[in-house]
Amino acid sequence: MSIDSIPVRVAAIEAVAPMIREFRLEAIDGSLPAFSPGSHVQVAMPGEQREIRNAYSLCSDPRETGSYRIAVRLQEDSRGGSAFMHSQVSVGDRLQITPPANFFAPAWHARKHLLIAGGVGITPFMSYIPELERQGADFELHYLYRSSQTGAYRDELMHRLGQAFNGYDSDAGVRCDLSVLLSNREPGSHVYICGPESLIEGVRETARALGWPESLIHYEAFAAPEPGEPFKAKLVRSGRAVEVAADESLLEALEREGIEVPNLCRGGVCGQCVTSVVEGSVEHRDDFLSADEKASGTCIMPCVSRAAGNHLILDL
């Protein structure tokens, strides 16, 4: 990992839902950096074929810097990360994490915060809630889950938040009517969504249909890179060639070959890994580059984007 990675020790592991495990990570020396609500860290996992790095939201109180908590849902189609965390990691193990970074911070000037969580998407809100409480902010949590799989922390949250807690267990047939949730809201209400793409899209569409201004809707846009066709990346400066497999990202393939590219979000948001393209067309999948930059074909975000053909030539 990069120079400023932080070694941590797994201090506790707890099943917080049938498919979700919580890991408490302690600093090996000193304390951990303070962080803002909505922050995430990358966790490096030594997988069988290659190192895997996944970003996980911190789900503890930002005031608690003795340890961090993350919660990991076992993905059925895991690319290795969640399966590794669930089956290979034990209490006492050492892991490497990055310092926290944040692309999902609260809008501090909001009049009201509507937090909408789907399944393991509750995690960033576990760091929001203590800070919003400290500031005496007005907020509601709407928590959609399936009790046979997810629903972590719901009892604790129900007791803690009282009226501000709204749970929807689809396994018990309780649905969330988004248009009811989003209707009759006062100005200055900001909505935050963390969950599956379908939930994010559902909230955005409903809000748009109800006339909500876009800038009141916040969501965690980044997700694990989607697979694609394999391709070859040629590197002009080092004269090397890297094969990118269907189930790995270009960034991961470069790292596997020992080529470090600066990066933070690994999800096409932060812009740190932008790399110049010398030749070849790009399938852009990021939220960072402008439409003009994408059309120019001169750069790529290797964390999520891939070759549109069978090769790319990069200025690396």
């Binding site: 009759n184 006062e186 100005p187 200055g188 209400s189 006339g211 909500w212 201004p213 009141l216």
Partner: peptide
């Protein structure tokens, strides 16, 4: 007036 308007006011 703005105390009691909907979030979708223009």
């Amino acid at each position: 007036m703005l105390v009691n308007v909907p979030v979708s006011t223009r």
